[in-house]
Amino acid sequence: MSNKESTMADLTKEELLGMYRQMHRIRAFEMAVYDGVQRGVIAGGPHLYVGEEAVAVGVCTTLRPMDYITSTHRGHGHLIAKGGQLKPMMAEILGKATGYCKGKGGSMHIADLNLGILGANGIVGGGLPTAVGAALSSKLKQGGWVVASFFGDGAANTGSFHESLNLAAAWKLPVIFVCENNTFAMFTPMEWTTAIKDLSARAAAYGMVGTTVDGNDVLAVYRAAVEARERALAGEGPTLLECKTYRFLGHYVGDPEDYRKPGEVEMHKKNDPLPRFEKVLIEAGMINKELMQQMMAETRQEAKEALEFALSSPDPDPSELTMDVRRPFKPLGDLERVSYIVEEGVG
């Protein structure tokens, strides 16, 4: 039995189709965001996940609702895969009051603690320490949750990456560090900035397991994430899981994309994670063209409705601008003492 078949064996048909639908949902959502930017209704140059869907879906399929993720500037896919709803996500991207963060976070800062989404991040590498802390909390509170931290190949060169991986390994914390190696950090190819080919090689330096997988093969990602998760739960510490993938669209919507080699995108599109997974499902007799068409149409409709919902939602009221900067201080009750002594003096 090949690896692929054995993986499919532990996933039910329902789960496999759920993964497939989730990948379509992410792509449809991102294309709706793209459309929104073209129509001039979305500002801020959002970073889209098209082409990388297998990573988020492969990893998040292994997570339970109690588990946490930290995400990045390219976070929409992670959030959807962790259960994020399209309407409040889209509303947040449009800065609307109905968004996950009342329109104050935006595309790069969507968070929903109830779904275990600790937040996307505008600072490259900024979310890794948060993931380490959430995993420390799991250990201290014996909460039993694991934390998946998504970040790019660019983030793997930050100091934050080094400190976070070392700390998580030293304390054997339940983190899955998911490096999405899409070959570029913004406009810079990885080989210009990094002397090694497989970033997972760095894991050895921290004393943790490192694996590189084909990030466009959702089942390969899933399989590796299952192993990482089992290690985490067994108290064996973190894993560095590198998923090799490629982004089909610009770094942000509007990127001139003049840094790519001619034909590069076309070449990578032959490796599109969606048709690849389709092929597996068709061969296994789980899906046919009709069902595929239907799922595609349904997810597109959902994304379209999300954009319509966002467009028809109110903006946050200007009076709320400075609300939520901090919480009101907790009342101290009977224990409050403002002052103890006042020195002598003439008032």
Partner: peptide, 26 residues
């Protein structure tokens, strides 16, 4: 030692880990 943690010299990771721990109930 679980609740009084002697750490590596990693101030970014410490402050960030405090945030992650706080967001998850500590």
């Amino acid at each position: 030692p679980e609740r009084v943690r002697n750490t590596p010299i990693s101030e970014q990771a410490l402050v960030g880990a405090a945030l992650g721990a706080a967001l998850t109930g500590c």
